[in-house]
Amino acid sequence: MSAGGLEVDLEVPGRVRAAFSARPGRVVALIGPNGAGKSSLVHALAGLVPAQGRAHLDGVDLLPLSAREREVGLVFQDRALFPHLTARENVAFGPRSRGVPRRVARERADHWLGRMGLPELAGRRPRQLSGGQAQRVAIARALATEPRLLLLDEPMAGLDVGVAMALRLELARHLRDYDGVTLLVTHDAIDALTLADEVVVLDEGRVAQEGTPDDVAAHPRTDHVARLVGLNVLRDQEGFTSFRPRDVTVSLRRPEGSARLTWSGPVASAQQHGDAVRLLVDTRPPLLADVTPQAVAELGIAPGREVWLSVKATAVRRYGAVPEGR
């Protein structure tokens, strides 16, 4: 076991069981559907939920420590800024609680608010801040305690698309400079791809996949990730098969010809996707298919209509049978 970074092998009974590790300075994205155990895992690492097992941070086991004794910063999903304190007082709260003199804590708060680009908002209360500003204050508050592990629980949740994009870029810059471990809970593939060095996929309370963002995006092993990155993934005894929705051909009759995989089922939904229309078809399992708007009109596609899907064997990728074991 290495001394630096995060080594986790823990269980929150009934919620999640996960093992993974991260070196200092790395950003790990934790993705998975609702109920996969992401928040439980994060709260267990913060010390807010009891857990069994071990979670070593720079060689120190966190689990026997109370929340306040851990060198862990948590940015809550709903931010949880203290509504009765100003932005500066919010950020200074951590240092003050750890015994830093009032004046020094204030200076440190101003420093962090400055780094987050909010020096002029120090005197405002949370309700006077926009969503993006409040999220920056929340991040500054977590970082001001100089944690060795930074936990970000859905930091972009509830923000407008443009605001989220700006915050994502800014966060990427800060995380590059941060020498502790960052654990980023997200349900957004863009967050994982742009911010993370590694991705841990949780599904039904277990680690379903682990790898670099590129690898996970190219070889998804769960329906959730497949949907996130817009790929079709099929699972069988020998491994996984994936293909892009635009490589799928849609027809009303069973397609002829060799070297094709075929399925049939009713159209469940149709949505604009770029300049194509993305169909979700209720085959077993459900698959995505991109067709042109003209094809939709010609084939008379509407929800409930039975269609055949096929894909050329050459457009299909097959990979690993056994998830990388830990």
Binding site: A46, G47, L48, S66, A67, R68, R70, V72, G73, L74, F76, A80, F82, F93, G94, S97, R98, R141, A142, T145
Partner: peptide
């Protein structure tokens, strides 16, 4: 909870 994680 937030207060506790901040070390209070």
């Amino acid at each position: 909870a937030a207060s506790a994680t901040l070390g209070a």
